[in-house]
C-alpha cells in the first residue's frame, strides 16, 4: 500500500494536521459567542470551524498512526548513483523555477512597473533554463537573443492585450 519514503512524509503530514486541527479547535473555542447580541446558541461563529478542527485532527492522527505501522521510522534505502543524479537535476530545476516565480510574484510585481517586471522575469526564466554548459558561444548568444526577443514580445504584447483588448487592470 505504501512505499517507505511516503510513509515518512505521511507521518510528518499527520502530525502537522493533528496540530493544525487542535489549533483550529482552540481558535474556534475562543471565537466570540455574541451573548450581548442574544444570538441563538446554535449559530455561534466558532461551531463549524471547531467541528472541522476536530475532524482534521482525527484524520491527521489516523494518518500518523497508519504511517507508523507502515514503517515510517525505519531507515530509508539509499538511492543508486544514476537515480541520485536524476533526482538532483529535477530538484535543481524545481528550486530554480520556484525561486524565479517567487521573485517575480512577490518581489517585483507591485513594486516595479508590470511591463518591466514581466520582461525581467521572462528573460531570466528563458535564459536561465536554456543555458547549457556544453553550448559554444554562438549557441549561447543565439539562445540569449531568443530569450531577449521573447521577453520584449511579452513586455509589449501582454499589457496591450490585457489592458486595451480585455480592459483588465494589471498590477
Amino acid at each position: 500500500m505504501h512505499t517507505r519514503p511516503l510513509a515518512r512524509a505521511d507521518l510528518i503530514t499527520g502530525i502537522v494536521l493533528l496540530v493544525l486541527g487542535l489549533a483550529v479547535l482552540a481558535e474556534s473555542y475562543g471565537m466570540p459567542r455574541l451573548e450581548e447580541r442574544r444570538i441563538n446558541l446554535w449559530t455561534v461563529p466558532g461551531l463549524v470551524p471547531g467541528l472541522l478542527g476536530i475532524v482534521i485532527a482525527v484524520l491527521g492522527g489516523v494518518l500518523a498512526l497508519r504511517s507508523l505501522v507502515a514503517g515510517a521510522l525505519r531507515t530509508r534505502p539509499k538511492l543508486t548513483g544514476t537515480e541520485s543524479a536524476e533526482v538532483r537535476a529535477a530538484r535543481a530545476r524545481l528550486l530554480a523555477c520556484l525561486a524565479l516565480c517567487l521573485a517575480y510574484a512577490v518581489l517585483l510585481v507591485g513594486r516595479v512597473p508590470f511591463w518591466l517586471a514581466t520582461g525581467i522575469f521572462v528573460l531570466a526564466f528563458v535564459a536561465g533554463f536554456e543555458w547549457r554548459r556544453e553550448d559554444d558561444i554562438r549557441q549561447r548568444l543565439g539562445k540569449l537573443a531568443a530569450a531577449c526577443a521573447l521577453a520584449a514580445a511579452a513586455m509589449l504584447a501582454i499589457p496591450y492585450v490585457f489592458e486595451y483588448l480585455f480592459l483588465v487592470r494589471l498590477p
Binding site: 523555477c97 524565479l100 516565480c101 517575480y104 510574484a105 510585481v109 507591485g110 514581466t118 522575469f121 521572462v122 526564466f125 528563458v126 533554463f129 536554456e130 531568443a146 521573447l150 511579452a154 501582454i158 490585457f162 483588465v168 487592470r169 494589471l170 498590477p171
Partner: peptide, 24 residues
C-alpha cells in the same frame, strides 16, 4: 519548448487572480 512557455503561463497566473479584485 516548456522553457519558453512556462514563464508566459506564470505571468497569466499572476494576472488572472489580480484582474477581478485588483488586490496583490
Amino acid at each position: 519548448p516548456r522553457e519558453r512557455l512556462m514563464p508566459i503561463v506564470f505571468v497569466l497566473c499572476v494576472i488572472g487572480p489580480y484582474a477581478i479584485t485588483q488586490r496583490l
